[in-house]
Design a protein around this nucleic acid. Sequence first.
DNA 1: AAGAATGTTACATG
DNA 2: ACATGTAACATTCT
Length: 286
Amino acid sequence: MPELPEVETIVRDLAPRLRGRTIRGAQVRWPRTIAAPAPDEFVAKVAGLRFETFDRRGKYMIFGLARDDQSHFRGVAPTRWLIIHLRMTGRIDLSPHGHQADPHTHVILELDDGADMSFRDPRKFGRIWLVADPQQAIGRLGPEPFDPTFSAQTLAKRLNGRRTAVKALLLDQSIVAGVGNIYADEALFEARMHPARPGASLSPDEVERLHVAVQLVLARAINGGGSSLGSGSTNYVRPGGEAGGYQEEHRVFRRTGQPCPICATPIQRLRIAQRSTHFCPSCQPE
DNA sequence: AAGAATGTTACATG
DNA sequence: ACATGTAACATTCT
């Protein structure tokens, strides 16, 4: 499940491989993957564009592309943006051109160095945009967790008056961008906070703790290369195929019944906002 | 082996 | 504005 740390890892892996590469052509095998423009227009317009910049916003990957033309100069300002959201099971693979694409590969970008950049997504929830302005794809997204605009104060303001469980609020991308189910649970454990606590019930101290915990957990996960869970074909892997390592550091996520790393109380599971939620009943009291 | 669970976001309905 | 629920899907788990 690619959340912010997984997406960040993928973008970092991709940047040195793709910088300066030109897209020669594209194949769209499942048209609905292309959110904008129309799939045939996407194929026509993406050819001849060169990768210039590499970014991430929340769980969106943002590639700045420039027209290749006859210019030999690199580093020109991007004129088009290729934006990819992996949703649940999307992933990016790099492989030699013309390789046998598996049945869940929905879009293939052919690069000028003989490689194919493929978008593979068994559940087909992932989306790709080619737009003139990133806002067209990203819409209204909350602050980046490491940006100064995400502070204990701004978080407190967004939690103010909300009766919704704090876990559900962490998953709300308009409050803070990039937190998904894994890191919401891990951050709440780090903050020693019960996931069902109403947003409005947090004291200023607790909001501060939560703010720090979100940043800490995400930063650690990025350092670990993200989390790979399970072994199925839907699992997250890096573009080179290797797994992340942060799943080894999970303290509560998918550890129901196992001892809490702090107090050895068995981890419990409950359902909040239709998502399974893991916590230590002793370290994270109601 | 049928049925439920999985998790992200946009959209719809109170 | 807020709260809740559902669709979009196919694989994996029970």
